[in-house]
């Protein structure tokens, strides 16, 4: 019963993720409104409002008269772009550190794990805003800062996986047959450590999207007029008492996206490696 529900929720997660990716890719075709062009005469109109030309603004308009739905659809581009890019960077760093740390062991392992402790000791958001505050907010800086500081989970999971794979017969056999270390690592160890890595990457993507919107919310994300979910929320906060829809809908978009990715990640974990603790 639980398994069935789990599968159904994982499927739901997959549908959501595919939907968001599609929204990001086909954004200009999905919405008839321009996400950037301002129209002060139709500002702060409520959800479902029909403008002069008979077009319905399903989620209303913002303080500059822009269609909120259009901005949410276009906002998914930044969220996913940062998500994929940052996960790729941190995933690759973590994979490399985990493989080497687990396979070589000894002092190298000690060093890597201390580095991980140091990284974990930092209040992540504070460090990210400090660094971006110094470097200046730009798409590249955001991706690099999130990417470089999120490798620890990957490294730990891959390392523990490598520790057990290393002792298995087929790896020992490959070493005994004289295979050199890098070959054994890439051909025999890596493929077996990939499944847990993928689970971590999926769940981490959800975290990265939340962080990106948090940075945008604080004004340190991709700068306006480019629509970002966090930035829309920050704008909407000012109009909380008069126009609730401004702050509400971008948050719903984040919630649904993150929930979908989490469910997909949970489903992947159940399917690939139920004992994984992440």
């Amino acid at each position: 019963m639980t398994r069935l529900i789990r599968r159904r929720t994982a499927l739901f997660g997959l549908v959501v993720v595919v939907g968001v990716v599609a929204a990001a890719v086909f954004a200009p075709m999905l919405s008839r409104f321009d996400p950037i062009e301002q129209n002060i005469s139709q500002r702060l109109e409520p959800p479902g409002w029909t403008d002069g030309s008979g077009l319905v603004h399903l989620l209303g308009t913002d303080q500059l008269g822009r269609d909120i739905l259009a901005r949410i659809i276009h906002g998914s581009r930044i969220a996913l772009l940062v998500g994929f890019a940052a996960v790729a960077i941190s995933g690759l760093i973590g994979l490399a550190v985990g493989l080497v740390s687990g396979y070589v062991g000894g002092r190298v392992d000690d060093l890597c794990m201390r580095l991980a402790d140091i990284q974990l000791a930092f209040p992540f958001i504070l460090l990210a805003i400090a660094v971006i505050g110094v470097l200046g907010p730009s798409l590249g800086n955001i991706i690099v800062v999130i990417g470089v500081s999120s490798w620890v989970v990957y490294a730990r999971v891959v390392r523990s996986e490598v520790l057990s794979i290393r002792e298995r017969e087929f790896v020992q056999a490959a070493i005994a047959l004289g295979g050199d270390d890098s070959r054994v690592l890439v051909r025999h160890v890596l493929p077996n450590a990939f499944a847990p890595w993928l689970v971590v990457a999926t769940l981490d993507m959800a975290r990265v999207i939340v962080i990106e919107s948090a940075l945008s919310f604080l004004g340190l994300g991709v700068q306006p007029p480019t629509p970002t979910w966090g930035g829309m929320l920050a704008d909407g906060r000012v109009y909380l008492s008069t126009a609730w829809w401004l702050a509400t809908f971008p948050g719903v978009a984040i919630l649904i996206t993150v929930l979908g990715i989490n469910l997909l990640g949970d489903g992947l974990r159940d399917a690939l490696d139920p004992r994984l603790q992440v």
């Binding site: 959800a206 939340v210 919107s213 948090a214 919310f217 966090g230 929320l233 909407g236 906060r237 909380l240 609730w244 702050a247 509400t248 971008p250 948050g251 984040i254 919630l255 993150v258 929930l259 989490n262």
Partner: peptide
């Protein structure tokens, strides 16, 4: 839901 909800949005909704 709790794990998927961004803190800042939750805070704003509670204020609302």
């Amino acid at each position: 839901l709790g794990q998927s909800m961004p803190t800042f949005w939750l805070g704003i909704m509670l204020i609302l």
